[in-house]
């Protein structure tokens, strides 16, 4: 149940993608997203698919595990599929029964939609699979740094993100532990109607909040004890560094985007 959420999880490894700078990876994902959202020819789709599969291959993450991340997408996919199929008006008729009317265009739009969603999720998962949360937020902070000049508290936001990401596994573990403890005392989480089930989670939520506050308190004290005083003048243990690997990766992604867009432009 809880364990099925794969997006946002880091999987240790030593692939090219693991070693690349988070900034390179993030900018690559932005470009990749732009490509996925604009691609519109069969050739283009095939290339995107091949590129995505290649990236998964290079990352060394088991393919099956990457697919697991698509589970939550499935619901959205089915939902949009239904809407798209039924409500795309006009076009060549494929199938009709009473008010259900499936057109060639509607089906096409749906398949495109599912394709885009899935490739986007796989791409985004690859980013988090191959980047530790710390490096990810370091990268974000670095990329957003120009916004500091207009008074956006980038460091504080990045710190909050780091802390939030850091505590996701801890809180999940805690939740599971409390669920078990209450289940051992006869708590029942699966029967009854919605309201009854929601209520049955109170014995889990209350201790969870109490412990989250306790942890926050302890963390604040620990940070103060180590003289944390915000981002001004703060140095880092691990500096981000753009290496030849990053230039290579960026070149590949740029090349990929250029090919696709040229292809799309020539198809017009």
């Amino acid at each position: 149940m809880i364990k099925d959420i794969t997006l946002g999880q880091y999987i240790p490894g030593d692939s090219v993608l693991h070693r690349a700078d988070p900034r390179t990876k993030m900018l690559s994902i932005v470009l990749y997203t732009a490509v996925v959202l604009t691609v519109n020819s069969y050739m283009g789709y095939t290339l995107v698919l091949l590129f995505t599969l290649l990236a998964v291959r290079i990352s060394g993450i088991p393919f099956k595990y990457t697919l697991k991340g698509l589970k939550p997408v499935l619901f959205i996919a089915v939902f949009t599929a239904v809407i798209n199929i039924f409500f795309t008006g006009g076009g060549t008729l494929l199938f009709q029964y009473a008010f259900i009317r499936i057109s060639y265009e509607g089906l096409g739009a749906t398949l495109r939609m599912i394709f885009r969603l899935s490739t986007l999720v796989i791409g985004a998962s690859l980013l988090t699979f191959t980047t530790t949360p710390i490096r990810l937020t370091d990268g974000i902070e670095n990329l957003m740094a120009p916004l500091k000049r207009i008074g956006v508290p980038i460091h504080e936001m990045a710190m909050m993100m780091t802390i939030a990401l850091r505590f996701i596994p801890t809180l999940l573990e805690e939740t599971e532990k409390i669920i078990k403890a209450q289940a051992a005392r006869g708590a029942d989480f699966d029967t009854g109607n919605f309201i009854k089930r929601a209520k049955s989670y109170m014995p889990v939520l209350i201790p969870l909040f109490v412990s989250a506050f306790r942890r926050a308190d302890e963390l604040a004290v620990a940070m103060e004890a180590r003289c944390y005083r915000g981002g001004v003048g703060r140095t880092r243990l691990r500096q981000l560094e753009i290496t030849r690997l990053d230039y290579g990766l960026a070149a590949v992604v740029l090349f990929f985007a250029a090919v696709i867009w040229l292809l799309e432009a020539s198809a017009l």
Binding site: K177, I178, K180, A181, Q182, A184, M202, P203, I206, P207, V210, S211
Partner: peptide, 14 residues
């Protein structure tokens, strides 16, 4: 029949 007291059981009071 089987009662389990977990580690730090005081954290589950609610």
């Amino acid at each position: 029949i089987v009662g389990i007291v977990f580690q730090y059981p005081e954290h589950q009071l609610f």
